[in-house]
Design a protein around this nucleic acid. Structure first.
Length: 740
RNA sequence: GGCGUGGUAGCUCAGUUGGUCAGAGCAUGGGUCUUACAAGCCCCAGGUCGUAGGUUCAAGUCCUACCCGCGCCACCA
């Protein structure tokens, strides 16, 4: 053995050893208990980041620990097509070629993204393997595999049959730049200064940031307790506007803050969430004035075709000219919703959407956690889950993007003359009602060049996995990515009738970042219970976010991203894994200093040299194998170290049972370094009965290597490969039996 | 605004039911190449445990208030 542990030499050898012996293959063994983890699939849109490595390290610890304890373990790998995320990355590339998604029909665009993703997938798999992750690659799943799509479609059909799916107009967060809607959770809220305009509005003066939406106003609202305006409530007022005068109802609603502005609000149900809800309460007309292109529509007279900001300026100018503008507050700060990807202003818009009615689904998902049948670690995160479920509203599941699983609905063009269709013909992009389009274009042309389609709320549709015969156009919306990934534990095990599913489901632990507890974990629980009657996992462990050394979230724009590959290269995988794991005990976010990685690289070397010392001392000697039990000939120090070993094993087990990874890792670390290396080795050097002491040492050292193995699999396995073995001992440390 | 979480040595963090709990790693300073390991070993220094009260024989640990950080959610035109 060399004087130093060289991870660059040893790591590839060890990976090869495990691979050759097929160590991570999940085996259905009815005599053993299964222990299953489904890997949260990394996004196929890029490379692994240090957070992925933390996830891999933690899950690998669990898998190796349980495997050595005699469970039949299975860790399922996969990658995620990551719908929107990937499409954005791809569109960035398109832009560099001077193109955009609007240049392609649906099928062509989909194929192009598919090819793009194929390139990334391989890289990620290689990186995961290099981390030592004990994944069973023979059971690999990609979120767009045929069987995944099929299962998602089957569920959708079942939900349709169970009346859990409906279509409705709904005020959505529509981003005209991205051309798609966003869930509330996908919005960012930023504080910004915008002018607040005070304008005359019939008998009132009211304040608004968005004068350009006035064409869509269908009421004026005041607070019911506001004495100033009491006389107007319920009456109609006449308003002098830019398009002439018009009449509006005055409503009283508690959503109006009498302290703000003048205490009077114009109500625009089509373009504001609050107003939309007030509109529902008061039966107001919903009158959209901004189109999906982000421009004012034909209800806006001369302002038609102007973009929002452009129209706002013009409207303000014209109000001034008409003497309707009272004042402008330039210092007004408020919070604006923008899309989380591009940071564009979101335009609340009314669109027909597909919804999941969550009432029946959420109740069991809540109870299962409250009753402790699904346990969430750390416990204090549980509140986040229960509150979210309690407040959960119906779930809009349609996304206006290509990259994803298409909603399997079909519209007959004959029965739905009002379908709004956009398609590509040659280099031309044509939009219109299907009934009109069919006068000048053939169905075949439209179908082939189809880009997107908006079906009215009451459109007739047929659900079908397969393309329908006849003149049907497909729904062009895709599923919210969480709808399909909510099936992840099911599809990776080939639900509903595979042997894997029968044996390994429900899985043991879902280990993931807390930031997707709501997005993902809640949906998996809902689908798991809905489809199988059982939750998809027994425990949920949520790790913290790995922050940069400056304590902030890592981001490319801040330039504080830690590249894990550099650490692996310089200090080795074991050092990176230990560096990440020590400090995650409570699932809190933590900063990740390089120091920790360095110190564990040193520790790997320490272990290596403990082995060297032992082999050196054992040279030319006949050393028996201590059985771990007999007390004959034991000296005080021997008894002490054996006792300490037993305690350490127990503590490590206890800590791991509670998902206290950091604690377990440090216990093993201190035992090896302080108790065994610093203390016992020095003692062995002075022993008269050196052969006997060495046999004790060998025993304790090997048991120590075993408990360290889940944390530092490479160095421990590499050392084991250099040690003499007793009859019946495994050639592979990973296949050894966990000490008791 | 609501909910949650944290403020312990220069840095990153442990400290689980109140009683060797004032700790670890790294960094700093000094010594040491003692043949397993200088990626080692030995030693030194460093904290009134956010602030102020309170409960208790005893409080980083429990209670109250306040200050600061972080996160999630909601959101007023």
């Amino acid at each position: 053995m060399d004087k130093r542990y060289d991870h660059k030499i040893e790591e590839p050898k060890i990976l090869d050893l495990w691979k050759k012996n097929d160590c991570f293959k999940g085996i259905i063994d009815k005599k053993k208990k299964p222990f299953t983890i489904v890997l949260p699939p990394p996004n196929a849109s890029g490379k692994l980041h240090v957070g992925n490595d933390l996830m891999l390290a933690i899950e690998d610890v669990l898998i190796r620990w349980k495997k050595m304890q005699g469970y039949s373990t299975l860790w399922l790998p996969g990658t995620d097509h990551a719908g929107f995320e990937t499409q954005i990355v791809f569109e960035r590339e398109l832009r560099e070629e001077g193109k955009s998604r609007f240049d392609y029909d649906r099928d062509t665009l989909y194929q192009k993204i598919w090819d793009f993703v194929e390139k990334n997938k391989g890289d990620i798999d290689e990186q995961m393997t290099r981390m030592g992750a004990g994944l069973d690659w023979s059971r690999y799943t990609y979120t767009l595999d045929d069987h995944v799509v099929d299962t998602v479609y089957t569920t959708f059909q079942k939900m349709v049959d169970d009346n859990l799916i409906y279509r409705d107009n709904y005020i959505v967060n529509y981003c005209p730049k991205c051309g798609t809607t966003f869930a509330d959770l996908e919005l960012k809220h930023i504080t910004r200064k915008d002018p607040l305009y005070y304008m005359k509005y019939g008998p009132f003066t009211l304040a608004t940031v968005r004068p350009e939406t006035k064409f869509g106003d269908t009421a004026v609202a005041v607070n019911p307790k506001d004495k100033r305006y009491k006389e107007y409530i319920g009456k109609e007022i006449e308003v002098e506007g830019l398009l002439g005068s018009f009449k509006l109802k005055v409503i009283a609603d508690h959503f109006v803050d009498p302290e703000f502005g003048t205490g009077v609000v114009k109500v625009t149900p089509a373009h504001d969430k609050n107003d939309y809800e007030a509109g529902l309460r008061h039966n107001l007309e919903v009158k959209p004035v901004i189109g999906l292109d982000g421009k004012l529509n034909d209800k806006c007279g001369p302002y038609e075709g102007m973009k929002v900001m452009e129209a706002r300026e013009k409207v303000v100018d014209d109000l001034k000219a008409k003497g309707l503008l009272v004042k402008i507050d330039e210092e007004y700060e408020h919070v604006v919703s923008v899309c989380y990807k591009g940071g564009h202003d979101v335009e609340p818009t009314v669109l027909p959407n597909w919804f999941v009615s969550v009432g029946k689904l959420k109740k069991p998902a809540l109870e299962i956690v409250k009753k402790g049948k699904v346990r969430i670690f750390p416990k204090w995160r549980e509140v986040t889950y229960t509150r979210w479920i309690e407040e959960m509203r119906d779930w809009p599941i349609s996304r206006q993007i290509v990259w994803g699983i298409r909603i399997p609905a079909w519209y007959s063009v004959k029965d739905n003359p009002k379908l709004l269709v956009t398609f590509i013909k040659g280099s031309e992009r044509i939009t219109g009602k299907i009934s009109e389009l069919l006068m000048n274009h053939s169905f075949g042309e439209i179908e082939k060049g189809l880009q997107n389609l908006i079906a009215p709320k009451d459109a007739k549709y047929i659900i079908s996995k397969e393309k329908l015969e006849g003149e049907f156009l497909p729904e062009t919306d895709t599923f919210d990515t969480w709808f399909s990934s909510g099936h992840w534990p099911l599809v990776t095990l080939h639900y509903p009738d595979s042997e894997d599913f029968k044996y390994f489901y429900p899985t043991s632990v879902m280990e993931t970042g807390w930031e997707i507890l709501r997005f993902w974990v809640s949906r998996m629980i809902m689908f798991g219970i809905y489809l199988t009657g059982n939750p998809p996992f027994n425990d949920v462990y949520l790790h913290g976010l790995v922050r940069a050394i400056d304590g902030k979230k890592m981001s490319k724009s801040l330039g504080n991203v830690v590249n894990p590959e550099e650490y692996i290269e310089e200090y080795g995988v074991d050092a990176l894994r230990m560096g990440l794991i020590s400090g995650t005990a409570n699932g809190k976010d933590f900063a990740f200093p390089k120091d920790k990685v360095v110190s564990y690289r040193n520790f790997a070397n320490k272990l290596w040299n403990m082995a060297r010392f032992m082999l050196l001392m054992m040279e030319d000697k006949e050393i028996s194998f201590y059985d771990g039990k007999s007390s004959k000939g034991l000296q005080k120090e021997d008894k002490e170290i054996l006792k300490k070993l037993k305690e350490t094993i127990k503590s490590v087990n206890d800590s791991l049972e509670k998902y206290r990874f950091s604690e377990a890792a440090e216990l093993a670390y201190h035992f090896m370094w302080d108790d065994l290396a610093s203390s016992y080795i020095e003692h062995v050097k002075d022993r008269q009965d050196k052969e006997f002491a060495l046999s004790i040492f060998r025993y304790v050292f090997v048991e120590g290597l075993k408990i360290l193995h889940p944390f530092m699999p490479f160095v421990t396995e590499a050392i084991w490969q250099n040690l003499p073995k007793n009859d019946g001992e495994s050639e592979i440390l990973l296949n050894s039996i966990w000490p008791e």
